[in-house]
Simulated scan of single mutants.
Amino acid sequence: MKFSINQSELQNALSVVLKGVATRSTLPILSGVYLDAQKDSLTLQTTDLELSIQYSVAALVEEEGKTVVPGKLFSEIIKNLPDAAVHVETEEETALITCDTSSFSIKTLNAEDFPGFPHVDVQQEMSIPFSQFSSMVKRVARVVSKDESRAILTGVLITFEDTYLKMVATDSYRLAITEVQLPDTPAEEFQAVIAGSFLQEIATLPRSEEDIKIALAENQIVITYQDTVFINRRIEGNFPNYKQLLPDSYATRVSMDKERLISAVKRTSLLGQSSSPVKFDIDTASQTVLLSAAAQDIGSAQETLSCAGEGENVEIAFNCAYVIDGLSSIATDNVFLEVQSSLKPGIFRADQDENFLYLVMPVRIS
């Protein structure tokens, strides 16, 4: 195998496929990057047997062939080369990498031992502009649970019904829901739970005007974007029935300036840890919200915000970090807080133009 490619293009390709390299596997081949030089393109593949990534990039191929190089080492070498043409040539079990005045010789692995890229029988496919997909994922994926013992909560529930694409995530303390209408999508209705970490990796890919394609198979999801194909296993199990948590009415509803609210919550939380509770004392008569926090043996803090509200006066407390997480996901200038009582979940909603809802379980007020 013999090919030449620009350093920055190869580095960019490696930054994408390295997300699929196995980090804890006992099989050395899974820590490698499979290189396949054919005609005028180079295809890179990685897999950890859960996630598989394939990326194609234009290259000057002098001699066709396949090999597997150690992923981390190969990436570090390419990253540290100057921005010039990189030449890669393989002989038996060695790859020779040259660029400008630098040259490296590294051991390779047998390409025959590398798992074949999965062939997936796709049953459903839909397209969505990448920027829309990315912002939806970033809003909900921060809410997924880190607790591997309840795998279903580490995923995002993606559904498509009545022309609406919806994403839902929960860690059982809070819940985030976002949806967009895709009226021109011919896809049939579907639902699948996909790993939040996987979706976050895709959402951080370079933005472009191109659509991202989402396809579902029996137990896998296939995502195609630009020259890259990602295949990941769906999470099996029943996602919690989140709809029963959503109340159809509220006792109190207030609208506040989002940036002022975020700043006020951050200030009142300075006394305790980020997980300390912040109390919202809503007074609809005076159209104010008094935020307060107290830490034993340290002191207390409070701040008054103006609001536009309706309904009953109510006191409710939430985990500070959860509130800031939810408010950071809202893109509108104003935010609504809806409360039924001090012991029932509070709901933060984006202003009308945007379909985003964030539900937080309350903290008991002593």
Score class of each variant (00 low, 15 high):
8 S>I: 07
298 I>A: 06
279 K>L: 14
93 E>K: 13
256 M>C: 14
320 C>V: 04
39 K>W: 02
272 G>L: 10
168 V>W: 07
238 N>Y: 06
267 R>I: 09
346 G>P: 01
122 V>W: 01
43 T>M: 11
316 I>C: 09
354 E>G: 05
360 V>W: 00
319 N>F: 05
149 S>Q: 07
197 S>T: 12
24 R>L: 09
6 N>W: 02
209 E>A: 15
24 R>E: 06
141 A>E: 11
356 F>L: 07
11 Q>N: 14
290 L>R: 11
341 S>E: 08
66 K>I: 08
259 E>H: 12
96 L>Q: 11
276 S>H: 10
85 A>I: 05
272 G>C: 07
99 C>R: 04
118 P>T: 15
271 L>T: 06
341 S>K: 05
181 Q>Y: 02
107 K>L: 07
221 I>D: 02
117 F>S: 06
312 E>L: 06
352 Q>D: 10
278 V>D: 01
162 D>K: 15
34 Y>W: 10
151 A>N: 06
31 S>I: 05
198 F>S: 13
248 D>S: 14
103 S>T: 14
237 G>A: 07
136 M>A: 12
130 F>G: 05
107 K>R: 13
109 L>S: 08
231 I>N: 00
322 Y>D: 07
132 Q>D: 15
131 S>V: 12
133 F>M: 10
161 E>F: 09
282 I>H: 00
116 G>E: 12
308 A>G: 03
206 P>W: 02
219 N>R: 13
237 G>H: 08
77 I>Q: 02
53 I>V: 14
101 T>N: 12
210 E>D: 14
296 Q>V: 15
148 E>V: 08
237 G>K: 07
202 I>V: 13
64 E>C: 12
173 Y>H: 09
201 E>M: 08
355 N>R: 05
303 E>V: 09
243 K>T: 14
297 D>M: 05
77 I>P: 06
294 A>D: 01
89 E>Q: 08
339 V>A: 09
345 P>C: 13
265 V>N: 01
103 S>G: 00
212 I>E: 03
91 E>T: 14
203 A>C: 05
231 I>F: 04
71 G>I: 14
184 D>W: 00
55 Y>H: 14
75 S>N: 00
198 F>I: 13
25 S>I: 09
316 I>Q: 02
78 I>A: 00
247 P>R: 04
264 A>Q: 04
232 N>H: 11
19 K>T: 04
270 L>D: 03
195 A>I: 00
101 T>S: 10
270 L>A: 11
159 T>E: 15
74 F>I: 06
335 V>Y: 01
81 L>T: 03
249 S>E: 12
3 F>D: 04
268 T>Y: 04
286 S>L: 14
156 V>P: 00
20 G>I: 10
261 L>G: 07
327 L>V: 08
123 Q>W: 00
104 F>Q: 02
145 S>M: 01
311 G>C: 01
358 Y>D: 03
304 T>R: 15
135 S>D: 09
42 L>Q: 01
187 A>D: 04
139 R>S: 15
229 V>L: 10
80 N>E: 11
354 E>P: 02
234 R>M: 15
26 T>M: 13
261 L>A: 12
165 L>R: 11
152 I>S: 06
40 D>Y: 00
327 L>F: 02
258 K>A: 08
307 C>D: 01
26 T>Q: 11
13 A>R: 02
173 Y>M: 11
53 I>C: 04
62 E>W: 02
226 Q>L: 12
238 N>R: 13
207 R>P: 13
116 G>P: 00
127 S>Y: 00
